[in-house]
Amino acid sequence: MSAQLPDYALVLAGILFGMGLLGVLMRRNIIYILISVEVMLNAAGLAFIAAGSRLAQADGQVMFIFILTLAAAEASVGLALIIQFYRAYRTLDSDAAKDMRG
């Protein structure tokens, strides 16, 4: 039974990824979009860990570390942009930034 944990974990990763995607598409507030993106990254990391556990290799955790790094950099840059966005548009509604529509 415990041998199947990685598979269940993968399914869980899929579920969490789907929920993160739902959050990204559903919310208008940029902060929430960012949060949902973090959820998705987390889910991806879980998938890697599960794969590494299944194969009994360290690569899964290594990938997870990289994902973590990436998430950190992306979160900080994203938040900086959110601050500028707020200063420019006075709102956190992502639909406010549609100047580039064609």
Binding site: L21, V24, L25, I33, S94, A97, K98, M100, R101, G102
Partner: peptide
């Protein structure tokens, strides 16, 4: 087709998804 360029982030994300 131009209306597909709505400029809204969520719209593009939806396309991605």
């Amino acid at each position: 087709l131009a209306s597909a360029q709505s400029g809204k982030v969520r719209w593009y994300l939806a396309g991605l998804a």
